[in-house]
Design a protein around this nucleic acid. Sequence first.
RNA 1: GCUCCAGUGGCGGAAUCGGUAGACGCGUCGGACUUAAAAUCCGAUUGGGCGAAUAACUCAGUGCCAGUUCAAGUCUGGCCUGGAGCACCA
Length: 836
Amino acid sequence: MNKEYFPQEIEKKWQKYWEEHNTFHTSDESDKPKYYALSMFPYPSGKLHMGHVRNYTITDVIARFKRMQGFNVLHPIGWDSFGLPAENAAMKHGANPAEWTDENIAYMTKQLKMLGLSYDWDREVTTCKPEYYKWTQWLFLQLYKKGLAYKKEAAVNWCDKCATVLANEQVIDGKCWRCDSVVEKKYLSQWFLKITDYADVLLKDLDKLTGWGDNVKTMQANWIGKSEGAIFRFKVVENDLEIPVYTTRPDTVHGITYLVVAPEYKDIEKLTTPENKDAVEQYRANARKLTEIERLSTDRVKTGVPLGTHAINPFTNEKFPLWTADYALAEYGTGAVMAVPTHDERDFAFAKKYNLPMKIVIASEEMKQNIKDINKIYSADEVPLKEAYTEEGTLVNSNEFDGIKNTEAKKAITQYSVDNGFGEFKTQFRLRDWLVSRQRYWGAPIPVVYCDKCGIQPVSEDSLPVLLPEDVDFSVVGKSPITTSKTFRDTICPVCGGHAVRETDTMDTFMCSSWYYLRYADAKNSEKCFDKELADKWLPVDQYVGGIEHAILHLLYSRFFTHALHDLGLVGFDEPFKNLLTQGMVLKDGSKMSKSKGNTVDPDEIFENYGADTARTFILSDSPPARDFDWSDAGVEGCYKFLNRVWRMISANEDKISLDYVIPENRTKVNDDLVRTVHIAIKGITNDIANDFQFNTVISKYRELTNSISDWVGKAQWNDEDKSVFSFAIVSLLKLMAPVAVHLTEEVWTQLGAKTSIHDEKWCEYDENLAKTSSITLVIQVNGKLKDKIEVDASLDDEKLKETALSSEKVKQLVEGKTIVKIIVVPKKLVNIVIK
RNA sequence: GCUCCAGUGGCGGAAUCGGUAGACGCGUCGGACUUAAAAUCCGAUUGGGCGAAUAACUCAGUGCCAGUUCAAGUCUGGCCUGGAGCACCA
């Protein structure tokens, strides 16, 4: 064995060996229980960054640990390779995005291998390859057949810079998730997936996901945004239209003094009188011009214009005016809001501004005493309220509902509307359907055609994939490059054989990533999307690891897909990810690593200077996986030193180690202590991994064990007993470190004479009786304060501990002249003497 | 405004059940080895008080204020600060 540790040499050697021997191939056939460990697959952006290193190291250590524990582990990798950066790079260089993508994949593959990750490369998937996107298209058709994919004209989010529409989930604070430019609203005919059909079950089943963090679950719950309320229909006075309104406050219905429809409301023109037409048109035009950010700003002054028409409140037969205002949103509820200014902050502000009347219908006891004319309809100037009253109270001014508590009135009033045929109970979700078409080239083409005669027709399944054309001009501006192809557009109708044109929009890349974890179960299947039996065998994913930034996007879409595929009979389970670990960000000097800030650390440099084992050890060492991780050069150095220490400790004593040692039953105290220390370490490390993968404490326990062994070496006589005990300690240390320092342990293991890989070894077992020290430090407290510590034999019973405590000189001094009220003994730990 | 998470030395962080607060590491300081440096090894390192002392003793201490308990970083209630998510959602 070499005296010094040369990671670069041994890492290359073993990477080559593992690859040649296909060491990490996963068989579908095995008697062992299955375990599916998965990292979120990367976008091939060019180079790995430290976030990748952290993500893949965590999952790799989990996979290796489970393998040693006797599981048949599936640990695959692939590429989320469709998307805009490739297309933008292609535009810049005039090349096809496929080339740029392939180059990046090749480079990043090399890097992943340098990190020593135990992937089964035979299952690699690449979403931009026809053999993959064929099945993305096929799945789209299955959803289409089920009525879950549909096309509609709608106001959609448009990013001008990316020249495409975006899903709601991709708009962050009114800006594009990718390029940060302000998103506009456009009216376009687009493809949607009906995720709203699954809103209820996606919310409800969050409860089943006990292996997910609350942060992600509440984020999803908020996004789905369930609320319970009622729909009331109001008859229009001037014509025979009806306006349905969704409200969560049916209890306030007697207080309506006006009604607002969104500027985009479908019947708005019919609701506008000729005299008001110009003003309304102008208001609508203005509203269209506003950006999402301006419009959604809560501090914006509310504006609106009257339509000139009126509606009737069926509860009171009162007539009230109709307005349009952009604080009503076309996409939520029915696009119309019943306004009760006294009990809603927004309505209050609006009514104040336009001097609309107000009527109090919910009152607290205090209000009832202090407001004399509570039944009056007030003008906005006179109303005896400084702000809307949104607390609980009892109903006033509400006919037969007067005196009922408002919380109870909600149900009673809605029931009344049901009985009289002008309302119903309604559950409303904030979640909108998922817009999946993109006006871009580098994505899976949506497999439908538009026939001159038959209209929208799905492409027949046996003609899939619809291949991306290659005769395209990437230099075009303002339209999708795909539309420049001379061969793509014109085709024949699968129904009538007549002329048809292809859909030129491609799918959102999130569709590709919504099912890739299923494809790994059967990655090479050219006949099917995946075999159901194999999918049911491997899925759900036992441990999914990835960034929190996908809390809603990818994780919600994937859950939707799995539920839909389950209903289609394609899989036998409905939730894809049993346990989810959302890893924190990798920071440098307290802020996120980014090229613009210039605080990035290049993984290649770390591999080169210290080796992958150091990188792996360090990225796990300083913070628990879920927390942010602050990169420090000194920390890397420290881990490198530690690995060197381990190496030297073994290489210097190589001749004393034998792989078939026998630990003697009767051993010296010093040797017994070392044996116990090893068992304690095994127990601690095994538990730390089981308990939310606390790798930071795992690494510190490696160090503690190494320190203990090193101290022991200083005292060793090197007789046969010493050699056995030392061998046991070193072999255990190597196995415990094998999932993390994958190359170093393998090298040392074979240098010590092993014929098989350490990664095929069984995980260390511990003996509960030995996983504790032979003596303990008895803590002695007086009135709960630490007063003394005495080293005692661990076998002493409570009575003996009490005696020992009372015999302490310090205790004797303190107790003198006082009464002992009681003595509490915590077995094998502590004695607390309470005195007065 | 609503929801979730977090707050412990100079720093990252540790502490199954409530039971020695600060494991392990980084940094710093001191020492050994060396002609010297690097590397390596050994020791110290929460703050205050009293000490010549790196001895002994003592007080305080896990964001703040209360509470429960023999005992609180840990449990309960109320705040404060930071981060994240949602938000004119009727």
